[in-house]
């Protein structure tokens, strides 16, 4: 019963967050200068044309009226029609979401693997040159933002040593059997490793660019908390039992030291998803972020709203998952 109450409470706070995000984005994009009608009509269009189109999209009504129309639509599952693409918003957004999710998850995996390995190496060889090297690498990784890493990677592995693809999600020449938009997962499920490999070659650089700063943060924090944990009494006690340094780090210190890092990964992962907007643009990757930029350029108000709502939902789900994992790993919170 307690668990059920906790879940219901969580769902309630999640919906408040979503409604908040919807209200803010709805009003802000209508207050900032620029309007979609101006983007659609050629220069010198007559006042009459402008008025007719404005009325057609309901933009002549007051903002509150517009909000009410949009909100009632949303509760019926209708997020409006994209002005620039002239298609319903939700299918458009959901069609692009899997590409972004796959990119973000791939980036997260890379960041956790690199960051975790660096932290463990740094702790295993603490107070030696190896740890200094890890610190330097962390500093470099942190001080260069993801979009700059993207440019560096494009120059290195796209131009000077062209081993990876720099543009798109998959080679256009390939024949695609996919029925879902989760290409990477579906290629594995269909055992089409040729397609899977092509997808990875496209995803690797944008994912790595997103992953490097996160890897540096993970490495830094995890190494720090591991080092602090290594001084604690229960770690010392396990040494006297005859365990090796590796065992002491991995099975005594790590499960406790990983907790603060886990919270951080949750927060940083939402930043990483924010980062996909620019990174997808740089690599012409057909994801939600790329679509968001087009939507903003075209002042495609319904599409922007739809994208923001989906991003907001994604962030609240990530927070929920992080909290649940945290409770699962920390016995002191399990009954709280």
């Amino acid at each position: 019963m307690k668990l059920l109450r906790a879940i219901l409470l969580r769902l309630a706070t999640m919906s408040v967050t979503l409604i908040g995000a919807a209200v803010v984005v709805f009003f802000v994009i209508r207050v900032v200068p620029g309007n979609p009608i101006a983007m659609m009509l050629p220069p010198g269009a007559s006042e009459e044309d402008i008025a007719r189109l404005t009325a057609h999209y309901g933009l002549d009504k007051t903002i509150l009226e517009q909000f009410w129309i949009w909100l009632t639509g949303v509760f019926h599952g209708d997020f409006g029609t994209s002005i620039s693409l002239r298609q319903p918003v939700m299918p458009l957004v959901l069609g692009r979401l899997p590409a972004t999710l796959e990119l973000a998850i791939f980036a997260l995996v890379i960041a956790v693997v690199i960051g975790g390995a660096m932290a463990l190496t740094g702790v295993r060889h603490r107070e030696t040159r190896t740890e200094t090297a890890v610190d330097v690498a962390n500093g470099v990784g942190l001080s260069i933002p993801d979009f700059l890493w993207a440019l560096i990677l494009i120059v290195l592995f796209g131009v000077l040593m062209p081993v990876f693809h720099i543009s798109g999600r998959i080679s256009p020449s390939l024949d695609l059997p996919f029925v879902t938009q989760f290409y990477v997962f579906e290629s594995i499920a269909r055992l089409r490793f040729d397609l899977w490999w092509d997808l990875l070659k496209h995803m690797f650089m944008p994912a790595l660019a997103l992953a490097i700063p996160l890897a540096a943060i993970i490495s830094q924090l995890l190494k720090q908390s591991l080092k602090e944990t290594m001084h604690l009494d229960y770690v010392t006690l396990s040494r006297t039992k005859g365990y090796s340094e590796n065992h002491v780090i991995l099975s005594e210190a790590l499960p406790n030291a990983v907790l603060p890092t886990l919270t951080l990964i949750g927060v940083q992962f939402t930043f990483l998803i924010g980062g996909t907007v620019i990174i997808e643009r740089l690599f012409s990757y057909e994801g939600l972020g790329n679509m968001a930029i087009d939507a903003v350029i075209n002042r495609d108000l319904p599409l922007i709203q739809g994208i923001v709502i989906v991003f907001a939902l994604l962030f609240t789900i990530i927070n929920l998952v992080v909290d649940m994992t945290y409770a699962l790993l920390n016995p002191r919170l399990r009954h709280a």
Binding site: D233, Y234, T240, P255, N330
Partner: peptide, 18 residues
């Protein structure tokens, strides 16, 4: 590990909390 053992000073910190 096989022949010696430690009884630590502070029982509150000498057990692994997880």
């Amino acid at each position: 590990g096989a022949t010696a053992a430690l009884i630590p000073q502070d029982p509150l910190t000498a057990l692994n909390p997880s």
